[in-house]
Amino acid sequence: MKARIFITLKPGVLDPQGKAIHHALEGLGFGGVNDVRAGKLIELELADGTEDKAIEDMCRKLLANTVIENFRIERLEGAQQ
């Protein structure tokens, strides 16, 4: 079983990487981009039957800094990706 963990900065937290991407897009001539927020995607290959609580614990204890980041878990059961 696979799980994807999407990690994003909480609203109001400064995002220097997002600002750098925004500036680079403008420099390349891409207009109309009002703001950029960068995040992380982590894919986990897990044993079948791994409980949601265990995945949440992984996020809270290691994968995300819950003081400044939010996370969202997406299970990919049966996916051949």
Rank of each mutant, 00 (worst) to 15 (best):
K2I: 06
A3N: 08
F6K: 11
I7D: 09
I7K: 07
I7A: 08
I7Y: 11
T8K: 15
L9C: 06
G12C: 02
V13Q: 07
L14W: 13
L14C: 07
D15W: 10
P16H: 09
Q17G: 01
K19P: 00
I21F: 05
H22T: 00
H22P: 02
A24P: 03
A24I: 11
A24H: 11
L25S: 11
L25M: 15
E26A: 14
G27S: 07
G29N: 04
G29P: 07
F30T: 11
G31H: 15
G31F: 05
G32M: 04
G32V: 00
G39N: 07
I42Y: 07
I42R: 04
E43I: 06
E45I: 11
L46V: 03
L46Q: 06
A47P: 09
E51D: 13
D52K: 04
D52C: 01
D52A: 09
K53S: 14
I55G: 13
E56V: 05
M58Q: 01
M58G: 00
C59K: 04
A64I: 01
A64W: 01
N65E: 02
N65Q: 01
E69L: 02
R72P: 03
R72G: 07
I73L: 12
E74T: 01
L76Q: 14
A79W: 04
A79D: 13
Q80Y: 01
Q81W: 00
